[in-house]
Amino acid sequence: MPILPIVTYNDPVLLKKAEEIEEDSPELQTLIDNMLETMYNADGVGLAAPQIGRSIKLFVMDTDAMIEDGEVPYGPMVFINPLILEKRGNKVPLEEGCLSIPEVNDKVFRPETVVIEFFDRDFNKHRLEAGGWTSRVIQHEYDHLEGILFLDYLSAFKKRLHKKELEEIDSGNKKVKYPIVPKQKSE
């Protein structure tokens, strides 16, 4: 399975709402496999279709490496046309990063629990209530489908602190250990 290049900070596909997926197809199943392989290759725990340049409502995740005592291991999961039905609990600050914003991390406040409805890779409908890291990753990846980056939750001051790092990513000068979509050099 090929490793797909990941789109990075300031690419327009990351800033727009994704489209619904109408039907299953062999191409979709191949894309799902490739996204999982790409996520694992980059040592990620989640990857949304916009991050590989596809503006469709699809993300994959595997949070088993992050779960803490008492959390449920789910293994690799596929979310097609997800819809968050509810977020509840206290907003908890946890350090987040993103494969599309390499090596930039900061605390983001998110509700502890999420209830999400989605289709799996076989187009079976599910409803999942999750807490802990699983909830965090679901919310982060879901945001990608809405054109929202974790940076959007940061204060203006925090964003200024990351300005140099973001400029390096945006210029295409950031070196990472996984394939990324090359930035277009302006003349």
Rank of each mutant, 00 (worst) to 15 (best):
L47V: 03
I180H: 00
V60Q: 02
T134P: 00
E117P: 01
T30F: 05
P102N: 03
I101Q: 09
M61D: 03
L28T: 09
A156W: 12
P73F: 08
I180L: 01
P182D: 06
F123M: 10
M35R: 04
F59W: 08
Y74H: 14
G89F: 08
F119W: 02
D11A: 14
C98T: 00
S186H: 05
L145T: 13
V104H: 11
S135G: 13
V137H: 04
V92W: 01
K175G: 02
P2R: 12
T134K: 10
E96R: 05
T8M: 01
D106W: 11
V181T: 04
G132I: 14
D69M: 10
R160S: 15
L161Q: 15
S55A: 14
L83W: 03
D64Q: 06
P182Y: 08
G70D: 05
E96S: 11
F118P: 02
G70H: 06
L166M: 13
P2E: 14
M39I: 08
M61K: 05
Y40R: 08
D170K: 15
W133Q: 09
L151T: 12
E23F: 04
D33Y: 09
D120G: 01
V78D: 10
F59D: 04
V60N: 03
I52L: 02
I80S: 13
Y178V: 11
T30M: 14
W133M: 11
N90V: 12
N41T: 06
S135T: 01
S55N: 14
I101K: 04
K107Y: 15
P179R: 08
F150H: 02
M35Q: 02
D24V: 06
G53S: 02
F123D: 10
L31R: 11
Y178H: 09
A130I: 08
N173G: 09
L151R: 11
V60I: 14
V45R: 00
P2L: 06
